[in-house]
Lab assay of single mutants.
Amino acid sequence: MALNTPQITPTKKITVRAIGEELPRGDYQRCPQCDMLFSLPEINSHQSAYCPRCQAKIRDGRDWSLTRLAAMAFTMLLLMPFAWGEPLLHIWLLGIRIDANVMQGIWQMTKQGDAITGSMVFFCVIGAPLILVTSIAYLWFGNRLGMNLRPVLLMLERLKEWVMLDIYLVGIGVASIKVQDYAHIQAGVGLFSFVALVILTTVTLSHLNVEELWERFYPQRPATRRDEKLRVCLGCHFTGYPDQRGRCPRCHIPLRLRRRHSLQKCWAALLASIVLLLPANLLPISIIYLNGGRQEDTILSGIMSLASSNIAVAGIVFIASILVPFTKVIVMFTLLLSIHFKCQQGLRTRILLLRMVTWIGRWSMLDLFVISLTMSLINRDQILAFTMGPAAFYFGAAVILTILAVEWLDSRLLWDAHESGNARFDD
Score class of each variant (00 low, 15 high):
residue 5 T to Q: 11
residue 7 Q to M: 14
residue 8 I to Q: 15
residue 9 T to R: 08
residue 17 R to W: 10
residue 18 A to P: 11
residue 21 E to S: 13
residue 21 E to W: 13
residue 23 L to E: 09
residue 24 P to V: 10
residue 25 R to F: 10
residue 27 D to A: 13
residue 28 Y to M: 13
residue 30 R to Q: 12
residue 33 Q to E: 11
residue 37 L to V: 12
residue 42 E to F: 07
residue 44 N to H: 11
residue 45 S to V: 14
residue 45 S to Q: 13
residue 53 R to F: 10
residue 54 C to I: 00
residue 61 G to W: 15
residue 62 R to V: 07
residue 72 M to F: 02
residue 74 F to G: 14
residue 82 F to Q: 06
residue 86 E to A: 10
residue 91 I to N: 05
residue 91 I to H: 02
residue 98 I to K: 03
residue 104 Q to I: 05
residue 105 G to V: 03
residue 114 D to R: 06
residue 116 I to T: 06
residue 119 S to H: 02
residue 124 C to S: 05
residue 135 S to D: 04
residue 136 I to S: 04
residue 138 Y to A: 04
residue 140 W to L: 14
residue 145 L to V: 14
residue 145 L to A: 09
residue 148 N to K: 04
residue 149 L to F: 02
residue 149 L to Y: 02
residue 151 P to T: 03
residue 157 E to Y: 08
residue 160 K to P: 08
residue 163 V to A: 07
residue 163 V to N: 06
residue 165 L to V: 12
residue 169 L to E: 01
residue 169 L to Y: 02
residue 170 V to E: 03
residue 171 G to R: 00
residue 171 G to K: 00
residue 171 G to D: 04
residue 172 I to E: 03
residue 172 I to L: 12
residue 173 G to T: 03
residue 175 A to E: 02
residue 180 Q to F: 10
residue 184 H to A: 12
residue 191 L to V: 10
residue 192 F to I: 12
residue 195 V to Y: 04
residue 202 T to L: 15
residue 205 L to M: 14
residue 206 S to F: 15
residue 208 L to H: 05
residue 212 E to S: 14
residue 213 L to G: 13
residue 215 E to N: 07
residue 215 E to L: 13
residue 226 R to G: 09
residue 230 L to T: 06
residue 236 C to W: 00
residue 252 H to P: 01
residue 258 R to A: 04
residue 259 R to N: 06
residue 266 C to Y: 02
residue 268 A to H: 01
residue 270 L to K: 13
residue 278 L to C: 07
residue 279 P to E: 11
residue 281 N to R: 00
residue 283 L to P: 02
residue 287 I to A: 05
residue 297 D to E: 03
residue 297 D to S: 05
residue 301 S to P: 09
residue 305 S to Y: 06
residue 305 S to I: 14
residue 307 A to H: 15
residue 311 I to V: 12
residue 311 I to Q: 11
residue 313 V to W: 07
residue 313 V to Y: 15
residue 317 V to P: 00
residue 318 F to K: 04
residue 319 I to R: 00
residue 321 S to Q: 04
residue 322 I to A: 10
residue 332 M to A: 10
residue 335 L to V: 12
residue 339 I to Y: 11
residue 342 K to H: 15
residue 343 C to L: 14
residue 353 L to C: 13
residue 353 L to I: 15
residue 359 W to S: 09
residue 363 W to T: 04
residue 364 S to M: 00
residue 366 L to R: 00
residue 369 F to H: 05
residue 370 V to I: 07
residue 372 S to D: 15
residue 378 I to L: 08
residue 384 L to F: 10
residue 384 L to Q: 01
residue 385 A to W: 03
residue 391 A to M: 01
residue 392 A to R: 00
residue 400 I to K: 04
residue 408 W to H: 04
residue 410 D to V: 00
residue 413 L to Q: 10
residue 414 L to A: 09
residue 425 F to W: 14
